[in-house]
Design a protein around this nucleic acid. Structure first.
Lengths: 113, 113
DNA sequence: CCTATCGTTCGACCTTTCTCGCACGATCAT
DNA sequence: ATGATCGTGCGAGAAAGGTCGAACGATAGG
């Protein structure tokens, strides 16, 4: 029995609305931020406090939208950003989203000076 | 009776996940593309074939997420992108999304050469 | 072999979103 | 005033998404 395999969309099948939707969920956006910082990451480190089935749900959605690549490794599974594919398809998108998210996270009520 | 008024989030209240969600719907993404091309636009030109209540639903969602500014003008209402606010909050986001959407719209099956 | 661990699938439940018809107030032209 | 047009709010129905527990197969280690 071959280890678990995963379907990934071809680079030219990655669709903008799907990617934006995948990134529109705070949980998933934080997962992507972690992946951008740490590179390939054990899936469980992306949501240590989440039920396993919930974690699978979100990683699958990220995978099917073309945002991440998933690879089985023994019992666990390793996740990494498809940053090159995304950069080729939607230049600048990923870094723009992550930069904007980072910078805007802290100011919600305190606008001044 | 004052003409219709609309609530718009302050620039620093514009949240990345909400914006991404607003742009993740093909209908709304096309509306935004039209607004980027044409500037301020009569709302009905953003979806001539849609039921009015459906159109209101999408323009309200775009407004409440901070993507567009809505202004009553007589019977109609005029919509324009909040491109300056968005640029200040999430630099490069809007143009990156629209550029990527434009470029990737035509190739889905024909990857070659 | 036995057991613990991990990811996946399924099913259930709830929430959110989408679509649309309809009635209403406001606006404009005649 | 009359009638047409526009946007909005409401409500219902359908569809999609999120959360999670339970059962299962696969893997790793003793």
């Amino acid at each position: 029995m071959p280890p678990r395999t995963y379907h990934h969309p071809d680079p030219n099948e990655i669709a903008m609305p799907r990617v934006l939707f995948a990134l529109s969920e705070p949980l998933r956006l934080n997962m992507v931020r972690t992946l951008a910082e740490q590179g390939e990451t054990d899936s469980i480190d992306l949501g240590p406090d989440l039920p396993r089935s919930t974690l699978t749900h979100h990683t699958s959605l990220l995978r099917e939208s073309g945002v991440v690549f998933v690879r089985a490794e023994g019992r666990k599974c390793m996740i990494k950003l498809r940053d090159e594919d995304l950069e080729a398809r939607f230049p600048g998108l990923l870094s723009t989203v992550l930069n904007g998210y980072e910078n805007a996270e802290d100011d919600h009520g305190e606008a001044d000076a």
